[in-house]
Design a protein around this nucleic acid. Structure first.
Lengths: 277, 277
DNA sequence: TTGCTCCTCACGTCACGTGAGGTGGC
DNA sequence: TTGCTCCTCACGTCACGTGAGGTGGC
């Protein structure tokens, strides 16, 4: 029999760990002297402790290990636990690799520009949305802004009993246009509506599915639309430095409902779907 | 100005997070109403919050982020932080990949054998050691056991004022031998000694460097030497299932100092240096 | 007597999530 | 009055590490 200190040296673990496992009931000393509370371990306990350490090494929680060491646990269950764990590790490696690419993108950016400029560009995914919208070709940016303001003023807070989400616009053109802009705009809603919705004389909105996007470079623009190019420039640098390419229509989501009179206070998120080159 | 609830929806973070960052001084509301304690945020604060979220996404701690957002922090420092972080992530991916291989090894083992048999075989690394030893060709296992017992009885607790480590044996032969065994045995010590050490009439021990081993499959044997084959069988299955090969001399480390009379109570760790195939 | 080893609390880790319990304005 | 939103504690997470303060045998 060994005292806790001796046994900890044999097993190469800390005394605290042994006391902790004792407390959890995971690994108890062979004998505890009642008078002093001293713990005594036997050499024959080493295999069980090593079994625990091995499973811990594989990344199982102590609770899972206790489960795995139950005498009556069939081998198939342990296999199931390990298969589960394999999936977790694989996903973790995947997300760490992506994180590594992002860090490298930021480093590259600092090296090119001397500072971290596009650091308010975020990368995230977007689920599929229901978009109640109309698609037009508008003559100019000013005309587009007027239409958005007009739509905002006519848009209700609720439709068919459900709250209405933010205003949004989608630029469908393959390239940037200053005039005759092919744009879809409307309201995000929770679920599809039966038939079109008429708002005032100018708008008839149809239910459309806006597809999910796996990766999206997004940047919030706070200010007048004339300054949108500053935001797109940031996103552009981000895309370049990260080794991405644009792979879908640009979206602008109005985080605050705009009004024609207060376009200079707009809070808009510009979203560019992207993919690795 | 937005209330905390509104702002949390704009920024897509929880209220709790905003309160937490306020408490840390990392991201404070533009205004706090003294009477009610209500926090008010402005849209102009969104870029800073996104900057924080981006750095968090890269895996920096909130403390590092606070440092990184200091106005006067030179770009080179941020670059340094990111380079450091890149190294961390790369190491983490490396260790996760190794863990994945281990999990897969255990799964393969269950599939072959129907149960987890070698689960008390541990994988670890071993630093370089100083080994005070003698190398012999012994006629048989029994003769080897006798020599070890004799050495154990003559071995002092301290040498040159320093405590003496465990007894150990190294099998140098490329293959397993039943007779005329080429074996080195002696004592682990903390640091090299000047000149050889004479113990009784039978032993003259020389200082030798035992090299570090990056990966070692180890299993503790508790019991008489006749049962050592059970332990080596476990290690063998582990090596096979994990897709490893043996790449160095086998070691046996006596975790308890043996005596000739009590060899049946030996606590010995059997160690096989291994590498991926 | 001094050192050494053992013991039992109990806090700290990291970034929040999750109640509990209470308040003010529509 | 009821709902809604805001507030401030304060515990829980996970697997121990790290003291603090005290005890028994050599």
């Amino acid at each position: 029999m060994f005292t806790i200190g001796e046994f900890s040296r044999l097993a190469r673990v800390s005394c605290r760990l042994l006391r902790h496992y004792d407390e959890l009931g995971l690994f108890k000393p062979a004998r505890v002297e009642a008078a002093t509370g001293y713990r005594y371990y036997s050499a024959a306990q080493l295999p069980r402790l090593n079994r625990i350490l091995v499973l811990r090494e594989l990344g199982l929680s102590l609770e899972q290990i206790a489960e795995a060491l139950r005498e009556d646990l069939p081998a198939a269950s342990l296999r199931g636990m390990l298969l589960l764990r394999r999936g977790e590790i694989a996903r973790s490696i995947e997300s760490e690799s992506q994180r590594l690419r992002q860090v490298e993108g930021r480093i590259a950016q600092i090296e090119v520009e001397g500072r971290l400029n596009a650091d308010d560009v975020v990368l995230r995914s977007e689920p599929a949305r229901v978009f109640l919208s109309t698609r037009r070709t508008v003559a100019s940016f000013a005309e587009g802004a007027r239409l958005l303001g007009a739509l905002a003023e006519r848009a209700p807070q609720r439709l068919a009993g459900r709250p209405v989400g933010p205003l949004a616009a989608v630029a469908h053109a393959a390239e940037f246009e200053l005039e005759d802009i092919d744009v879809e705009f409307g309201l995000m809603v929770e679920s599809a509506l039966d038939g079109p919705v008429r708002l005032g004389e100018e708008f008839v909105l149809h239910t459309r599915a806006l597809p999910a996007v796996e990766r999206l470079a997004a940047c919030v623009r706070v200010g007048p639309p004339q300054e949108a190019h500053l935001t797109t420039a940031r996103i552009a640098r981000f895309i370049e430095a990260g080794g991405y390419r644009i792979c879908g229509a640009t979206r602008e989501v109005f985080l605050q409902r705009p009004s024609a009179a207060r376009m200079h206070e707009a809070v808009v998120e510009m979203q560019f779907p992207i993919a690795s080159i």
